[in-house]
């Protein structure tokens, strides 16, 4: 179907270390895009229940788009994870003996050395996060309610799933929020290296751009971190409540 040339190209992409790094960088870039959009969606919490629920309804009512998007995301995760695990296994095999001398790795940042760990923890969190808010398994939300029973009582979204209330209720458990903040922290640590590294891996930089790209990686990760944690922090601090939303933002 893809022909001899296609096979060769696939062999390069999947069969060489550089090809796998390309796949990892491209899927990483896609996932980064998702995290940005997701964060912007989350921040609508501060605009009040109506805005957020309108946005949720918009997403969920277009099943023709939602599922391809979900499948796309899933395949990006799969490629990212597969290439990560495969490369890590190869990398470990490439260096079977460690040095005993002063173990401080030269120049390498903490983030760069812990990419697989941070990535795996984030992946584990993502599974929980989907079960928590997307599948809405009541047993794991630790607030003893079933999110599926939340419906908007009035307005344009009347009768639809009340995502706003679900978020606020969901984050009221400090452990759930804590896990979320931890995971988002690790994600941003991951991105603080991954963002600049993806430019490196795709060859999209030179020495003049590099400091800028590195700074972009760090600043973007930091903004993402702040953007994500404002939601649980606002909920836990009582700034937003299940019914009113945030007064100052409305």
């Amino acid at each position: 179907m893809i022909g001899a040339h296609g096979m060769k190209l696939a062999a390069q992409l999947f069969g060489t270390t550089l090809g796998r790094k390309y796949l990892m960088a491209l899927s990483g870039a896609g996932l980064f895009g998702f995290t940005v959009v997701h964060m912007l969606g989350n921040l609508q919490l501060f605009l009040g229940p109506e805005s957020l629920n309108r946005y949720a309804q918009f997403l969920q009512s277009n099943k023709e788009l939602l599922w391809p998007a979900r499948l796309g995301l899933l395949s990006m995760v799969a490629i990212h994870l597969w290439s990560a695990i495969k490369l890590t296994a190869e990398n470990k095999a490439a260096r079977p003996v460690q040095y005993i001398g002063d173990p401080n790795p030269v120049a390498a940042t903490f983030a760069s050395r812990t990419m697989l760990m941070s990535g795996l923890i984030v992946a584990a969190f993502a599974i929980y996060h989907i079960l928590h808010f997307t599948v809405q398994v009541p047993e794991i939300n630790f607030v003893s309610v079933d999110f599926k029973t939340f419906h908007v009582a009035e307005g344009a979204q009347k009768g639809f799933h009340d995502v706003y209330r679900m978020m606020v209720t969901g984050f009221q458990n400090p452990f759930v929020s804590g896990f979320y903040i931890l995971a988002v922290g690790l994600l941003c640590l991951h991105l603080s290296h991954g963002l600049s590294a993806l430019f490196q891996t795709l060859g999209l930089r030179n020495h003049a751009w590099w400091p800028l790209i590195q700074r972009f990686g760090i600043v973007a990760s930091l903004l993402l971190f702040l953007g994500y944690i404002t939601v649980p922090v606002a909920v836990l601090s009582g700034l937003v409540t299940a019914t009113t939303g945030c007064d100052c933002c409305k």
């Binding site: 270390t17 550089l18 796998r20 790094k21 390309y22 490369l87 190869e90 990398n91 470990k92 095999a93 490439a94 260096r95 790795p105 030269v106 120049a107 390498a108 940042t109 760069s112 050395r113 990419m115 290296h193 600049s196 590294a197 430019f199 490196q200 891996t201 795709l202 060859g203 999209l204 930089r205 030179n206 020495h207 590099w210």
Partner: peptide, 30 residues
């Protein structure tokens, strides 16, 4: 092994060969 962009290589290189050459290799490969 593969490159994880840690920069250790650049740091120990006695001829101070820069990491941007790896980006160039990636670009050449792409």
């Amino acid at each position: 092994g593969a490159c994880s962009v840690t920069g250790s290589c650049e740091a120990v290189c006695p001829k101070e060969i820069r990491l941007d050459f790896i980006a160039r290799l990636n670009r050449e490969y792409g």
